[in-house]
Write a protein that binds this DNA or RNA. Structure first.
Lengths: 259, 259
DNA sequence: ATTTTTCTGATTGACTTTGATTGAATTCGC
DNA sequence: GCGAATTCAATCAAAGTCAATCAGAAAAAT
């Protein structure tokens, strides 16, 4: 039985079902019957269909919204596989944080790992543009400041010209930055210009830049320039990081840590 | 609408259980029965289920929270019970949003309901200081701008002097505000001064202030002044709102909508 | 217009969940 | 350590919910 949809009223009902579901998160069949003016059998069929599409999870008595299409931080956190490398890098970065520091956390999965390790550290101030990092520290943790800005959905970070205004008010001790590409010629690069704009802003404002980048970033060049190597003080990476590149970076005065 | 007090869906109950657990850290079965309106047998079954998921540790008489799975704010947002009143108020507020608007969403549960209804509205720009509202719109939705600031954990909002800098760069058409107290003498009041500071900042910056407040706020006075009644243009509330107060507010030029 | 196909809603028996009961296990007071 | 009180797990009946099937209605195709 192939999926040949004859468009009757069904798609319209699905859309309304989606709407109800988005709003309530969990719905019971009984309520949907009233809401959609359909029989329980039809509602169940619709739910079964949406479940096959991966949009809902059916449970006894109704269904719950699958947040995958919503892209909530929870889902992202689940999806982002925290590799052992990234976690090791993050743990090494912890060593650079001292009591009383005001630190900046950039977007990116490696830095996110670092954020997770900061939940007990109440003697520092964390500044970030990453909604995911903020989520990690939203329940408990150090003082947390978000710089304002427009949400870039794909990275869940706040970017753009607005970020400038809060940043200029703050004095940052250390910034833990991520990057998409790291090369001798192009320096730090990332995919999005407004993301790059904010990164450069931060790096111009902070006393010490600590770059967290796993070995896959070595030699890569992405679209937009996000900073110069001259601004980087420490690079924390893993053992697989290209050795020649590491030596040249060290020669440029960057402290390279491989864990 | 004669909402049947039938037993909720299992996942719903789990979510509330998680919430209680997060708040109290340890819970007794007896208390959960009252809180979840379920029998001891069901509560035990639920606890056994959550234990299998590794979220709680069962002990004699109840259960304790496993810390590692703690502190995800998304759960709180999800768990916040949205009463029918609040949802109705939010739905009424939708009428005030026009294509092209730049609107501000304040913190508070009623406004959060409104945020949930805005996921399809891509023809507006949403500005907010509420991390929960941002979470609702993080996956999909209109352009989203967070004003910067320091996180106030209890309300999950960004507050304080830093909020000023992004706000002054923005031109807002309508602000949907929440409040803790609303009275003729004290105007709008809230519990936290820095929260109040940000609220006043917003209300001074926006063309039209639309207050969403259920009837429990009527006549209440909280700690810090968060705005004058003169700045409020529309009040959307429920049918139970004190009638005398409503009339006096109307006399002051406020459009009072009761849904 | 008729046939074919798809969709809907009702019926039925099977399954799941819930709450009460009862005997076993655990904790607390002495 | 022993007994009383509480709490737990297992079982069962009742209620609710589900999937399968079938007949009729609506739409599409001929």
């Amino acid at each position: 039985m192939a999926n040949t949809f004859k468009c009757g009223l069904a798609p319209e009902r699905w859309e309304r079902l989606r709407q109800v579901l988005r709003q309530h998160r969990v719905v019971r069949v009984e309520d949907l019957c009233r809401e959609l003016r359909a029989s329980p059998a039809t509602v169940r069929r619709d739910l079964a269909h949406l479940e096959k599409l991966g949009e809902v999870k059916r449970v006894h008595g109704g269904a719950v919204c699958i947040d995958s299409s919503l892209g909530e931080p929870v889902f992202e956190a689940k999806a982002s596989i925290s590799t052992e490398e990234k976690r090791r890098i993050a743990r090494a970065a912890l060593e650079y944080i001292e009591p009383g520091d005001t630190i900046y956390l950039d977007g990116g999965s490696t830095v996110l790992e670092l954020a997770r390790l900061l939940r007990d550290r109440t003697n520092i101030i964390v500044v970030t543009n990453s909604l995911r990092a903020a989520s990690e520290l939203a329940g408990q943790g150090p003082r947390l400041i978000l710089i304002g800005g427009e949400l870039r959905r794909i990275s869940q970070t706040l970017v753009g010209p607005l970020t400038r205004w809060v940043l200029q008010e703050l004095h940052l001790d250390k910034a833990f930055m991520g990057t998409m590409g790291l090369s001798l010629e192009a320096g730090l690069t990332t995919t999005d210009p407004s993301e790059a704009f904010t990164k450069e802003l931060v790096m111009g404002q902070v006393r010490r830049v600590i770059l967290l980048a796993d070995s896959t970033k070595a030699g890569r060049v992405s679209f937009a320039r996000a900073g110069r190597l001259e601004n980087v003080h420490v690079l924390i990476t893993d053992k697989q990081f290209d050795k020649a590149l590491a030596r040249q970076l060290a020669k440029k005065g960057i402290e390279v840590v491989r864990v």
